[in-house]
């Protein structure tokens, strides 16, 4: 599905990713954890194609294509999805109109006919249930005046609509109360299948109680310094990131 090899990236003069290696196979859920500033969100942004970051080395293969060569919109059309840590508020554009445009562009890209109004509405209703999101919310301007929880649910709703092959959840749990977290996690779990994969970026183990990962990786100073199963997340929860930092810093010294 996704194969990252020695990926390096920087913003302005600052090196942030210093050689990431990661292999995600269909059906797998990988979690990326790490202390603040370790490069977690940068990795998510680079994969989605944010142009603020300059890729200085390495390669990313996504379903046989060179991901780094694709525009952000083509990455999305190929089946990549980023659930934003901070979803953007866009006054004047309704979620409904936005989703219809996005979905039909994707369908066109794959040689499919656009959905008509009735088909689109039906699909929307179905997916709305998944994240318990209200129709009224979707008619409003995109994310404008939404609560933190509503914004995150809207991200998962969009993911459900677009049915990506690989979804990257960038700190989707941050700022969520436990009820919203359950709803979001439940939405994600219903979308899990043997064909699609998830990359869950999080600072805390909490989310991983609900979205159980197959693998957990710890990112520190722009490298994956430790990988393991879900037990690693529990260990991190108990001991904090300090023991990993010490291990790494000692190894370098």
């Amino acid at each position: 599905m996704l194969k990252i090899e020695n990926l390096q990236a920087r913003i302005e003069e600052k090196e942030i990713l210093r050689g990431i290696n990661l292999d995600i196979k269909p059906g797998e859920v990988h979690a990326i954890m790490g202390p603040n500033g370790s490069g977690k969100s940068t990795l998510a942004s680079v994969l989605a194609g944010r142009e603020d970051y300059e890729v200085t080395g390495g390669s990313v293969d996504f379903l046989g294509k060179d991901l780094l060569e694709l525009s952000p919109e083509d990455r999305a059309k190929e089946g990549l999805f980023l659930a934003f840590q901070y979803p953007v508020e866009i006054p004047g554009v309704s979620t409904t109109n936005f989703m219809k445009t996005a979905l039909n562009e994707k369908r066109k890209y794959h040689g499919l006919d656009p959905l008509d109004a009735a088909q689109f509405l039906k699909l929307m209703k179905e997916k709305m249930k998944l994240v318990q999101i209200d129709q009224a919310l979707l008619s409003r301007s995109l994310n404008e005046g939404f609560s933190g929880g509503e914004k995150k649910r809207n991200e998962i709703f969009q993911m459900a609509m677009l049915e990506p092959k690989l979804a990257i959840l960038d700190e989707t749990d941050s700022g969520l109360d436990i009820d919203a977290l359950r709803i979001v996690a439940n939405g994600v779990n219903q979308l899990r299948s043997k064909d699609n994969s998830f990359l869950v970026v999080t600072h805390y183990q909490r989310l991983l109680e609900y979205i159980v990962p197959d693998y957990v990786h710890v990112l520190y100073k722009g490298r994956i310094v430790k990988s393991g199963t879900k037990d690693l997340a529990l260990e991190l929860e108990e001991r904090g990131y300090d023991f990993i930092k010490e291990e790494v810093d000692q190894a370098i010294a």
């Binding site: 952000p72 919109e73 999305a76 953007v88 866009i90 004047g92 996005a102 969009q158």
Partner: peptide, 23 residues
């Protein structure tokens, strides 16, 4: 940021700009 958000959902740069300007 708004432009990237729209493009990250698969909307072409041209359409994303048009959507934002229409808004």
């Amino acid at each position: 940021d708004a432009l990237f958000y729209l493009r990250a959902r698969g909307i072409s740069e041209k359409n994303a700009k048009a959507l934002l300007l229409q808004a």
